[in-house]
Amino acid sequence: MSGLFIVQLLNGLQLGVLLFLIAAGLTLVFGVMNFINLAHGVQYMLGAYLAVMFYGYTGHFLVAVLLALVATLLFGLLLETVIFRRLYARDHLDQLLATFGIILFLNEAVKTVWGAAPLSLPIPELLSGSVPLAPGLNYPVYRFAIIGSGFVVGAALYAVVNHTRIGMLIRAGAHNAPMVSALGVDIGRLFMLVFAFGAMLAGFAGIMVAPVFSVEPGMGDSVLILAFVVIVIGGIGSIRGAFFGALLVGVIDTLGRSFMVDLLRIGVSTGQARAVAPALSSMLIYVIMAVILAMRPEGLFPVKGRQG
């Protein structure tokens, strides 16, 4: 049982890391620009599709990843310049409608370009195979790679946000954007940079999961909801909040799915436990979100003094 628990904990970490990569961009964009970007999940989908496409051209995993990263960054810049820039000053309802429209448009566009049939990316030779953690319980190497890359990105982001000039501007922007602008910082450029970088992070998440999940139109829509849960739990605008919020959601969701039946069996019959457990475990993270919002409406790691 302990072996199984460790495997499930790793699974939870891996889901958490994935959510962190998506939520990091979302929370920055929301926190710094006060902009709700529903289309963030689409950038995750695009990352996956671009990786598949570049892998098709080059046949090399790492090259495909790098090219896809550049392409998602450029696409983020394009979206920001052409569309999003015009929406920052609008209210949240306009932003929701416009970015929802972008979801619909890009989901269909992806289908037109790459077809409706799901695609996939093979795991690179180096990262295939699995490590035995307990007798009969193997853990795929590639999932370790996902966890590892997530922690590396997390550490790098932490360093950039807390120890560089640009990071200072981002923190200041999250705190009080008009004041930053008044102090002579080109806030438009800062926004563009943050946005494109956030898009690239979401794209990176999409690239990393392409060998594990099916690459299909609309794949970003379901993770987007979880990413919003993460940033609400973690505190809007906070990278640290996104990180711990994501790990919390990932681990709780996974452990809930794995052990809810066993937990319920203590109280009720097996049949009843099986009937109730799936519903309960799907609700779990939303219940926790509700509890956290009730106790700490600003999230677990709020940005200090953020102007609503």
């Binding site: 049982m1 199984l4 495997v7 699974n11 891996q14 999932r143 999940f213 379901s222 799915r257």
Partner: peptide, 15 residues
């Protein structure tokens, strides 16, 4: 419905 990651369930299968 629509679940993406089956790692938790597969670990259970393996055990």
């Amino acid at each position: 419905l629509g679940q993406l990651d089956f790692s938790a369930e597969l670990a259970r299968v393996a055990s």
